[in-house]
Nucleic acid binder design. Structure first.
Lengths: 218, 218
DNA sequence: CAGTGAATGTGCATTTTTTCACAATCTGAA
DNA sequence: TTCAGATTGTGAAAAAATGCACATTCACTG
């Protein structure tokens, strides 16, 4: 938790988040300690990978024993900064937007939706089940500032995504999670994460056509 | 399109899908030809990367000119096998499940939801806006077989995901797209793609706490 | 029909990421 | 207190992915 001097590979960060899922289960089931081997199996990775990933941030294990589940989970949460509340806003209240806003998993992990917007003014004013009312995008700047929004989630159609991204970054949002199927541009100070569900399906399609017979998938 | 002999890096496949997005736009806007440099900018990658990715599958460009948009798009679609219809089924008709089933983008790209299931029998029988009725998971085996389902999408809560995955693979589904926050296990003959939205947010959170000042994000 | 300009395709160097393999070190038992 | 057994932390090797740089090849012009 202390070191973290040099720069850490991006895949490592991604995996830390993945490690935390089974750790939560283990904690709940009362397992006090876990080895890198067991954790690796649960996450589908190599044990050395687990150890090396963790080693970027300190020494969390006990040689001969393994990692104390509770402590390791707390350490990962500190590293990933999920031990605090983050404020999100979301733009684009179609089906996907509504699904995300109402997703309990996010709230449980400290991600709170503070505002919901839509480009379509006919939707404005509608009250969502989560309690938020849909706001017009004209109010992005004001609300993002007032509510201290850290992360903007974009679930608009492709054609509105870049405009919305501009509004959000202009309003001071420091990072974006974009679901629209195009690469939104943002200033370097803003970190953008891109989720394209179509890409995932196309991956599957590709492998389906080759995977004839049965090739081990790693 | 012809060669594709040796094995292709996984990141290449992922990028091919990404390239197709701006290509669709270019085609629609009537641009006849695109250079690797322009396409690279649109996708946020290196031009040499674009060329190398394509080179795994053949020679699609014309030196001195670039790539013919229509032809390149067709080639990529052939490679990714998105030039045909794929049959999906989805299990777990919560908000996310409903959002996916009703997503027009999937249909547009040839991904048809042929059946929708839920673990909760109280939901069974309900008719979705897309026309499908929710089926009980007991009917997975029958329907997957009859409807020739290629890909199973899992949007159940975590605790049901593995059981559902087992039902699907047992029914002969050859690949899975899993949204539950755990690593589902499947036989080697079944390809699994995992989407954990929480992981994306945790990535953002991590970078937000470090990205003080403004670091270029690649 | 040769010359020019442009952009591809690709061998090679570089960088990044993963994996191996083992010394270091801890617990618990005798 | 020493020994056995287990598992970490890590340097070094291997593998994978990226990016450079340039020879190659095409279209177009005069």
């Amino acid at each position: 938790m202390m070191s973290e001097s040099g720069k850490v590979p991006a895949p490592t960060i991604e995996r830390l988040a993945i490690y935390s899922r089974p750790l939560e289960d283990l904690l709940e089931s009362g397992t006090p300690v876990v080895s890198s081997e067991r954790l690796a199996i649960l996450c589908g990775v190599n044990p050395a990978q687990v150890r090396k990933d963790l080693a970027y941030f300190g020494e969390f294990g006990v040689r001969g024993l393994g990692y104390e589940v509770r402590e390791l989970l707390r350490a990962i949460r500190t590293i990933l900064a999920t031990d605090r509340v983050w404020h999100l806003c979301i733009v684009g209240m179609g089906n996907l937007g509504r699904a995300l806003v109402e997703n309990e998993n996010f709230k449980k992990r400290g991600y709170l939706f503070a505002a919901a917007f839509d480009v379509d003014n006919r939707k404005v004013g509608e009250r969502l089940r989560c309690g938020l009312a849909i706001e017009p995008i004209a109010k992005i700047k004001e609300l993002v500032g007032r509510l201290n929004v850290d992360i903007g989630v974009i679930t608009t159609p492709q054609e509105d995504a870049q405009r919305v991204a501009d509004l959000l970054t202009d309003a001071g949002v420091k990072s974006l999670l974009n679901f629209a199927p195009l690469q939104v541009r943002a200033p370097a100070s803003c970190f953008v994460e891109h989720v394209d569900l179509g890409v995932k399906l196309e991956n599957l399609a590709y492998h389906l056509t080759r995977l004839r017979g049965a090739k081990p998938h790693k």
